[in-house]
C-alpha cells in the first residue's frame, strides 16, 4: 500500500482537506462528526466501484459494464431476500458476488480471447444485462427487499465508523497488498505498460485479464448489494449515475488511464474527493446546471495540475 503513494495520489487528499475547510467557511456544520462520517459511508459505494475500476484500468482496459452489474446484483440479492426463504436470504450476498464474478469472466472472454476492445465489449455486455433486467422485471421496479445483513453493511456503525467505509477500506488494503506483493500485481501493471512484452516473457496474460475483470465485477456487485441495502430496495438503472464518477475518481487518484501506473491509495482519495464535492455542492443548493459545470471544471483543474507538475520536472 505504502509503495503506491505518490504526489499524484496525495492530490485528492489535499483536495478533500481544502474542500472541508473552504466548505466549513460557509457552512460550519460541515466540520461536524455526523456530517463527515456520513460522507465516509456514502463514499464507500463509489469507492468500491472505483476499486474494481482501478484494477481494470491498471491493466490498460476499461469496464463500462459497471452500471448494470451493480443494478443486476442489487436486483438479484433483493429478490432472493424477497422470497422469505431463510436459506435464499443467507445466499443473497454470495449469489450477487458470484454474479459479478461471472459477468467479469464474460468481460474477460471478449477482451482476452476474442481481443475485442474492452470499451465496446463491456458496453455490449452492459446492454445485454440491461435487456435481461428488463425481461425479468417487466421494466418496473423489481419486488423484493434487502436483508438485515445488507442493511447493516450499508448503514451500520462499528466503533463510531460506518461499516460500509470499513468494508471498503478492508477490501482496498487487501487488494493493494495483493497488487504489490504477488506476481499477479506485477503482471497486471506490466500488461498495462506493454502486453506484448509481458506475453513474450512467459506470462499467461489471458488469465491475468480474466482475474482482473472478475475482481472488478465482484467489486461492482458488492457495491450494488450495499446500495440496495442502503435504499432498502433495488430499482432500474440505479447504477447509471455511477459510471462516470467512478472513472473520474480513479483518474483523479493519479492512476493513468493508459494503464500500468497508479494504485488503490489514490483511488480512495479520489472517491472521497468526488463524494465530498458532490455533497458540498448540493448542501450549497446550487442548481443542477452550475453543479455540472463546477464538477467538470474542478476535475479538469486537478488533472491539469497533475500534468503541469510533471512538465515542470521533465
Amino acid at each position: 500500500m505504502l509503495r503506491s503513494i505518490s504526489i499524484d495520489s496525495l492530490m485528492p487528499y489535499f483536495g478533500v482537506v481544502l474542500l472541508v475547510f473552504a466548505g466549513s467557511a460557509f457552512f460550519p456544520q460541515i466540520l461536524s462528526a455526523d456530517y463527515l462520517t456520513q460522507q465516509l459511508q456514502i463514499a464507500a459505494f463509489l469507492g468500491l466501484l472505483a476499486t474494481g475500476a482501478t484494477i481494470v484500468i491498471l491493466l490498460g482496459h476499461i469496464d463500462l459494464s459497471v452500471p448494470w452489474v451493480l443494478t443486476g446484483s442489487a436486483i438479484l440479492s433483493t429478490s432472493l431476500v424477497g422470497t422469505g426463504n431463510p436459506t435464499l436470504t443467507f445466499l443473497a450476498v454470495p449469489a450477487a458476488l458470484a454474479f459479478g464474478a461471472l459477468i467479469g469472466v464474460i468481460n474477460g472472454i471478449g477482451v482476452a480471447i476474442l481481443r475485442i476492445p474492452s470499451m465496446v465489449w463491456t458496453l455490449a455486455v452492459n446492454s445485454m444485462l440491461l435487456g435481461l433486467a428488463v425481461l425479468n422485471t417487466g421494466g418496473f421496479n423489481p419486488k423484493g427487499e434487502s436483508s438485515p445483513l445488507m442493511n447493516a453493511m450499508a448503514s451500520g456503525d462499528l466503533l463510531g465508523l460506518p461499516i460500509s467505509f470499513l468494508i471498503w477500506i478492508a477490501i482496498s488494503v487487501g487488494l493493494a497488498a495483493f497488487l504489490t506483493r504477488t506476481p499477479f500485481g506485477r503482471y497486471l501493471r506490466s500488461i498495462g505498460f506493454n502486453e506484448k512484452a509481458t506475453f513474450l516473457s512467459g506470462v499467461s496474460t489471458p488469465s491475468v485479464v480474466f482475474a482482473a475483470f472478475a475482481i472488478a465485477g465482484m467489486c461492482s456487485a458488492l457495491g450494488g448489494v450495499m446500495l440496495a441495502g442502503y435504499a432498502n430496495q433495488a430499482y432500474q438503472s440505479m447504477g447509471d449515475p455511477f459510471l462516470l464518477p467512478t472513472i473520474a475518481a480513479v483518474v483523479i487518484g493519479g492512476t493513468s488511464i493508459l494503464g500500468g501506473r497508479g494504485g488503490l491509495f489514490g483511488t480512495i482519495g479520489g472517491a472521497l474527493f468526488i463524494t465530498l464535492l458532490t455533497s458540498i455542492l448540493s448542501v450549497m443548493q446550487i442548481d443542477d446546471a452550475w453543479r455540472n459545470i463546477i464538477f467538470g471544471v474542478i476535475i479538469l483543474v486537478m488533472l491539469l495540475f497533475q500534468t503541469l507538475r510533471k512538465g515542470a520536472v521533465a
Partner: peptide
C-alpha cells in the same frame, strides 16, 4: 496543450457542456 488523455478530458468537459445546456433549458 494540457497533455491529458482525450477520454478523461471529454469526460470532464461533457459535464460542463451538459451544465451549460441546463442553464439554457432547465
Amino acid at each position: 496543450y494540457g497533455r491529458i488523455q482525450p477520454i478523461v478530458v471529454t469526460l470532464a468537459t461533457a459535464s460542463i457542456f451538459v451544465g451549460i445546456a441546463l442553464l439554457l433549458r432547465p
